[in-house]
Amino acid sequence: MSPPAERTAPQVACAGVTKTFDGRGGGVQALAGIDLVLRPGGLTALVGPSGCGKSTLLRIIAGLEQPSGGSVLVDGAAPGALRARGEIAVAFQDASLLPWRTVEANVALALRLARRPSAPEKVARLIRTVGLEGFESARPAQLSGGMRQRAAIARCLVTEPRLLLLDEPFGAVDELTRRRLNLELPPIWQGSPTTALLVTHSIPEAVLLADEVIVMSARPGRIAARVSVDIERPRRARHLHTAEFHALVDQVGDLLGVDRDTEPVAV
């Protein structure tokens, strides 16, 4: 019997991806000519103004939407094959836990959906790792927003995905919880052969978590700039107070024009 192939982080490449949504008054172009290569084994963050197509691009990479033009290749093939093997996991802004299932059953659900054998030990270990020990039998309604998001992350990781897509996973929690989750959860998958893409509205979150920040322009979404983040790992709370971190946050902010003075709106 040959030894199992070594798991490697996949290469994700988007070439000329466009997306137009049909509408009554003509189509709405969400994405225009996106050329993007995600760093294998790294975390790439997508930031941009609302409606610039960040989530649409993530959904296209996940295979949940079809591009109107261009191609998305994962290891040189369509993402469908990776998806069918359960090697893609998506974390949504809404934790999307099934309310009639316990935390344990929600985490184990990913194994069933990915047609993997049940692995109670792995489920229990991940629940412990995300800090939900003692809540295995709790229903989502009995958890706080942060705890639900932890359970959702555990569900994503239980299949050991090679491609992890995070669509504003911490967007629905308060700032304190968000900061804590930013520091506690990413180290769980970092170090494993996982390529990750994070969509976020938070510039500090993007800089704290990512190896590269992709700045998108307003609709139709285009890639406006790339900012490499070379802050050492593992990243801790102290990194939030370094000059390097603030310089990067300011750089991304400038690219997005967040601090530009605007004329007051006439009433």
């Binding site: 959904r59 996940a62 949940l64 998806r83 093997r85 809404d94 999307s96 309310p99 959906l113 299949t159």
Partner: peptide, 26 residues
Amino acid sequence: VPAVWTDLVASYGRGRSSRWCGCARG
């Protein structure tokens, strides 16, 4: 059924029938 639940099932490459059977119970 919230769209995000069907997206979740679809993200693991499961078809439409699985989406409904898996997450429509509640």
